[in-house]
Write a protein that binds this DNA or RNA. Structure first.
Length: 345
DNA sequence: TAGACGTGGGC
DNA sequence: TGCCCAAGTCT
């Protein structure tokens, strides 16, 4: 085990001298700090920056976001992924508005009850915004700690993460928020997964894995499950009023996002006509195809244009399609016909 | 507890 | 190119 007080001071000094200027480090508003942490979940800093800037401009306060239209929020979140994050965040913020007079609770016990607040976000917001002495254990911190302690346990297990959290908290410095960020910053810029910069690491003298020349063996890596593959036909159902049929997704995956009708490749046209209660022309050759890779599955999509003279509430004017929140997977498909001249549709 | 849940950067 | 992985949480 390494000497914590010395380690803490060394790491904090390094952080203060080297920290990157990030937009969410310019604010002390707990709402904005919280928003940034929600966005940063499983998402790289470079990706988050433009989204964060857009959100704090458009939704300047907790109340503004609490009272926003959910579909507008989804549209602004479009492309960031894990769409439940923003829905849960709005839910949580609405609860803060009602129960806590729009003030983010500085009491950890209350804050942790809010939707979308887990061990990481809870610790991060409470320490950074309120300087409460909680650890914020993310992937960076787990990698750093596994190497420092030469800890071969499975870092993906919640029980191990809890233990790491306690290990950090038992010698937490007064500057808890800065210390948490220092640990993460170290992982993001020095103690990186593939090519760690041990030579310039400020805490290399404390690293057991480095002493054993085994840095790359930590953290322990588990082999990943193969992604399941799905094959879909995606239909551009067009009527004679320049409208297209779009479906609001209600399943967990991409919930709340709009999509083109998507069916297993063996689904008959008749059953699709029945489902939407419309009559369809026979599809011609596919207009194109796309593969989309998710964390846990792969979609292979082939697009077909079909026509109808029917109309119902699911038909949207073609010019309005891009105003609706849509996953990147579906945007790829929509782009197949957005370049086709109107005369050919 | 393990699997579901998005997308893009970077090698 | 394909694969790993990124400031995790929910069920």
């Amino acid at each position: 085990m390494f000497k914590r007080p010395v380690f803490n001071n060394t790491l904090l000094n390094w952080y203060h001298a080297n920290k990157r200027e990030l937009p969410w480090r310019e604010t002390s508003d707990p709402f904005k700090i919280w928003l940034s942490e929600v966005m940063l979940q499983q998402t790289q800093v470079i990706t988050v920056i433009p989204y964060y800037e857009k959100f704090i401009t458009k939704y300047e306060s907790l109340d503004a976001l609490a009272e926003a239209d959910e579909q507008d929020l989804l549209k602004d979140w479009e492309g960031l992924g894990y769409y439940n994050r923003i829905r849960n965040f709005q839910h949580a913020v609405q609860e803060v508005q009602e129960k806590y007079d729009s003030k983010v609770p500085d009491c950890p016990e209350e804050f942790f009850k809010l939707k979308g607040v887990g061990p990481y976000i809870g610790g991060a917001v409470q320490s950074i915004a309120f300087n409460n002495a909680l650890a914020a254990v993310d992937g960076n911190v787990l990698r750093v700690m596994s190497r420092l302690n030469r800890d071969g346990r499975d870092m993906t297990k919640a029980s191990v993460q809890k233990d790491v959290k306690h290990f950090i908290e038992k010698d937490m410095p007064l500057e808890a928020g800065d210390f948490n960020q220092a640990l993460m910053e170290l992982g993001a810029t020095i103690c990186t997964p593939r090519t760690p910069k041990c030579v310039i690491c400020p805490v290399k003298d404390h690293c057991e894995a480095l002493k054993a020349n085994e840095v790359m063996q930590y953290p322990l890596k588990k082999k990943k499950k193969a992604k399941q593959e799905y094959y879909y036909n995606v239909y551009f159902i067009l009527n004679d009023k320049d409208e297209i049929l779009l479906i609001k997704q209600e399943d967990d995956l991409l919930k709340g996002m709009y999509e083109l009708p998507r069916f297993d490749v063996d689904t008959s046209l008749e059953s699709i006509e029945e489902k939407y209660n419309i009559h369809l022309s026979q599809p011609g050759a596919p207009v194109g195809s796309h593969k989309h890779v998710f964390t846990h599955k792969i979609w292979y999509m082939e697009g077909y244009i079909v026509y109808t003279v029917n109309d119902n509430e699911n038909f949207i004017p073609l010019k309005d399609v891009k105003k609706l929140p849509m996953s990147v997977a579906m945007q790829k498909m929509v782009n197949l016909i957005s370049t086709v001249p109107d005369s050919e549709l």
